[in-house]
Amino acid sequence: MEKDLSLGEFIITRLIKASGYSAIVFVTLIFYFLLREGLPTLGEVELGNLFSTRWYPIESYYGILPLISGSLIVTIGAAMVAIPFGVGTAIFIAEIAPRWAREILKPLVELLGGLPSVVLGFLGILVLAPNLRILLDLPTGLTALAGSLLLGAISIPTVVSVAEDALDSVPRSYRDAALALGATRWQTIWRVTLPAARSGVLTAIMLGVGRAIGETMTVMMVTGNAPVLATSLASLFSPVRTMTATIAAEMGEVASGSVHYHTLFFIGMVLFIISLIVNVTASSVVFRQKKRAERVLS
């Protein structure tokens, strides 16, 4: 009897351990594969070429700077849309909306989060781009701006639901204390609730931005895909091409093992590293604040 029990225990702990380690193994394998396929680029393409501003693989121009700048400008634009609207909506749902509105809005936001990005890209091509072109009097509506707006829309649900959870977990006593001192609802939100939920709201923003950097389908459909170096904010109004869109569009047509193929993987590596930096920054900010909060509570 006792033997059975310890045997069962043994098997279960091993299984749990195995699945835990397998996650690490998978990530390592992915990274290894990226390195194996991407690093050869450094030997095949001169650095001067790789970090130039011209991406034209057919004639062996492999400058990835326009792609990086394209991703950055679209992502920054998306963040400028997603942060105010996302955090604002979260504040509305968590702090201001009456109960019935909250019960409609929360599932609605989650539903939006589940919308396939192809569908949004489709709307972007059919509705957003033509209107942008007319409204801003541009040669084409397929621009970084269109990509930013759509990516912002895609990131908003992530930002809203994470930030809303964070605001919701601020103890009611904080709000009560501020209100009882004669603070208005808005003063309470701005000076007490939001600062208290700071780390959760930051996480929400980082997750939203992460979602925007990695998004492929929509940007490929609406940003025009011209690999031009973005040098200023004015580039928002011209076509750009992102790293993700480049990989998705070109990976299907390259010969496996060619220079172009390796360079695409190299771009993948760069993307991986950028996401890693965003995530590590986010979690270290959150971690620092957690530690301070724990000290305060003890």
């Binding site: 103890p171 006593s173 904080y174 009560d176 204390a177 501020a178 009882a180 007490v192 600062p195 208290a196």
Partner: peptide, 10 residues
């Protein structure tokens, strides 16, 4: 008003 658990603002 003073509450059961002191809530000092940060």
């Amino acid at each position: 008003m003073v509450f059961a658990r002191p809530v000092v603002l940060p």
